[in-house]
Design a protein around this nucleic acid. Structure first.
Lengths: 186, 186
DNA sequence: ACGGTTTTGGACTGAGCTGTCCAAAACTGA
DNA sequence: TCAGTTTTGGACAGCTCAGTCCAAAACCGT
């Protein structure tokens, strides 16, 4: 009767902004514009809806991120720069930070199955970036002595750090200067 | 009647492990070994106890961190390495990650007064590290063209990223290789 | 030892939470 | 149009939550 994906999207933004525990089912009803029946009929439980929201987040952000990693027309340093820039130019209407990181921080130690979910989303991006760095090394763009997997890991750790900073209201200027500092490691 | 600091310490670890919202007052009673009366008599509310816990976290971790930043007998790169190593060798009995970062992520966007609190703790460490880097530049340890404040900011962003990774159960090996990659930026 | 204060255990309160239920409304195919 | 199914609103149930209260116990200076 209603657009399911649209409802998941609205729920996603609430979880993203406020976290899992702090989000009430009432807040989800308000945000989606649906009644409790509709939500529970369609999504079974708050937790299931959260999982759907997380999957949607992966699909929407993961695809563009992966595409960016594999843009071979750009030098690797530029690709990494643009990955990190996602943390300084949030799309309008998006809450600060990153739902995946919020989830890892809030629920990681207490919900191992979510950690696994986060990892299965993360692993291919990590692998793709490591592979891209390896190619860049062959082309002489990056010092061949460096470990590509470590550099890929490093990149996402910095991205995570930027996303944490965003949750604290870091200024764009500060984020940008951190990115430039981070790129010196390449 | 009981050791107040010890109670705050126990509460701190529960908040640190599970987050603010997911921690019930009952869990705080169990962890501290106190009854509800004692807790509410002494700490007024869950939120006040959380603030106390956060302050305790600042005092215990902030002091050693600041001391490390100012250890002029060590080269700056080594000091930064040791700062970052805090994320790979957690003290036994400490939950994974960092209470300050967990708080920024979980409560930052919805509780601006906590962000302010986090910032007043963070600012002096940032300033001290920037100053230490400036001194290191004068001694020729670090490229003088780099912006000390940006490098200091960068260091703590990486630390934050490592702490997020720790919440996802990152291996020590991965954390260490990220640290070594991060140090290349200096 | 003892009167006065402080602290404690644990029952209690009211609010808010997730999830259920059902009758009415809306939709469907023929 | 109309029987049959699906979806919806909103009341409801059961539970857990943060916080209160009070009588009993523990503590204290003298």
């Amino acid at each position: 009767m209603f657009d399911e994906e649209q409802a998941v999207d609205a729920a996603m933004r609430v979880f993203w902004a406020s976290g899992y525990e702090a989000t009430s089912t009432q807040a989800l009803c308000t945000a989606t514009g649906l009644g409790r029946s509709s939500i529970y009929n369609t999504f079974t439980s708050k937790r299931t809806l959260f999982d759907r929201a997380l999957h949607r987040y992966f699909e929407t952000t993961g695809a563009t991120q992966l595409a960016l990693i594999q843009r071979e027309d750009l030098p690797i340093r530029e690709r990494v720069r643009r990955i990190l820039w996602n943390a300084v130019e949030p799309a309008p209407g998006d809450p600060p930070g990153c739902l995946a990181i919020n989830t890892a921080v809030e629920l990681g130690p207490t919900h191992p199955e979510l950690v696994e979910l986060l990892n299965t989303d993360h692993a291919p991006k990590l692998a793709a970036l490591a592979e891209a760095i390896r190619t860049a090394q062959a082309a002489g763009e990056v010092d061949a002595a460096r470990d590509p997997a470590a550099l890929a890991d490093y990149t996402f750790v910095v991205l995570g750090g930027l996303r944490v900073a965003a949750r604290r209201g870091a200024t764009s200027a500060s984020q940008i200067s951190v990115i430039e500092a981070a790129l010196q490691a390449f």
